[in-house]
Nucleic acid binder design. Structure first.
Lengths: 203, 203
DNA sequence: GTCTATAAGTTGATAGAC
DNA sequence: GTCTATCAACTTATAGAC
């Protein structure tokens, strides 16, 4: 950001290499087979360096999660800024595409959270809803829909929360199916939006 | 089924106790903390009995998955038999409720599948789409919608595959949110269907 | 900040008695 | 079918040199 010297860690690259290796193992083999030994081997780093940077296994997993979470809000913010501009359909397709891409990346990580009780507990009750709960996830999408509703571009009585759930659910489900069975044929994002769209418009 | 003596295993209950203990650990702590030692302790059974019944860890996980999978097709079949009867809305709400309940039970198990590469591979490429892929999951729901379409109760040009994805995605997403953040407020199944319904009806 | 060396505990799995 | 006893491999984590 500034012209000054970098703040904090000089970053020799070990930290990033560890994070990258962790994500790679998570995507290929999952938490069940995630060991600090394997991470170290892949990152070409000493095993103890992992503990230096992340304290313990849980700290590492936490760091992996936090590395990707901000992208979700970015996707929601991007579409929200476009409320009222362009066509509603294009905005929704881009939103679904953005969410789909987000879930594609985070699905193995989200699986790890679900499959590790300690990690799940850690991310669960920050205030209400947690860092990955419905409030944090649905609200930003619902905010975009509320804006379009205020502008009269969707029906006045639209349930924005249910609509957000339908959109997010479709994106996540697509990503999970792709993760579980590779390149199996799946309804396209454009088709999904075209199917949902009539529900948003005036009766 | 028959009045004859039970076929196969006399079943002293050890097998079922092991399965129940496995599912309990999966739901509480996830695959990351699932060990045969802990299973044996919870089931009050010798650790080696697990290997007698399920060969190895992977066989056990596979048995857990196959114990719950049939319920999915049951839910789909139940709604399909009701096509053309009752109100479309009621059928869809019951379908979503049924899927929601299914995913509530299977979410910790599905997380285990996603988080264990070997298990995932085992269930992935049986033919095309696998045992948990989109074909197996979406087709039965799409079949119900096709039937309603044939009966003229939904619009003639409805994309049944996209609709199925929206319904299944909503159910799964609801279950995941509940698993991740407990009793956080969530759009109700009735609200979700009421939101989606206008998209299914004639323009 | 990164390494090598090390340790205590846990893992999935097998052998063999009953 | 179920148990006890046993094992080698692997797990996370620490100590201390550079």
């Amino acid at each position: 950001m500034s012209g000054e010297k970098r703040r904090g860690r000089p970053s020799t690259g070990v930290r990033d290499a560890v994070l990258a290796a962790t994500e790679a193992i998570l995507a290929e083999s999952g938490v069940a087979r995630l060991s600090t030994k394997e991470i170290a081997r892949r990152a070409s780093v000493a095993e103890s360096s992992i503990f230096y940077h992340f304290t313990d296994r849980l700290g590492l997993l936490q760091a992996v999660v936090h590395r990707h979470l901000p992208r979700y809000k970015e996707v929601a913010t991007e579409v929200r800024e476009r409320a009222g501009t362009g066509s509603l359909r294009d905005n929704l397709v881009d939103l679904l595409d953005g969410l789909d891409a987000f879930y594609e990346r985070i699905t193995p990580i989200l699986a790890a959270v679900q499959a590790d009780g300690e990690l799940r507990a850690l991310l669960a009750d920050r205030g209400a809803g947690g860092e990955i709960g419905p409030q944090r996830a649905l609200l930003p999408i619902a905010a975009y829909l509320t804006e379009e509703r205020r502008l009269g571009r969707v029906r006045a009585d639209l349930d924005v929360d249910s609509t957000a759930l339908l959109v997010v659910g479709a994106a996540h489900q697509r990503a999970v199916y792709r993760y579980l069975s590779g390149a199996a044929p799946l309804p396209g994002t454009g088709d999904v939006i075209d199917t949902l769209l009539p529900a948003l418009l005036d009766a």
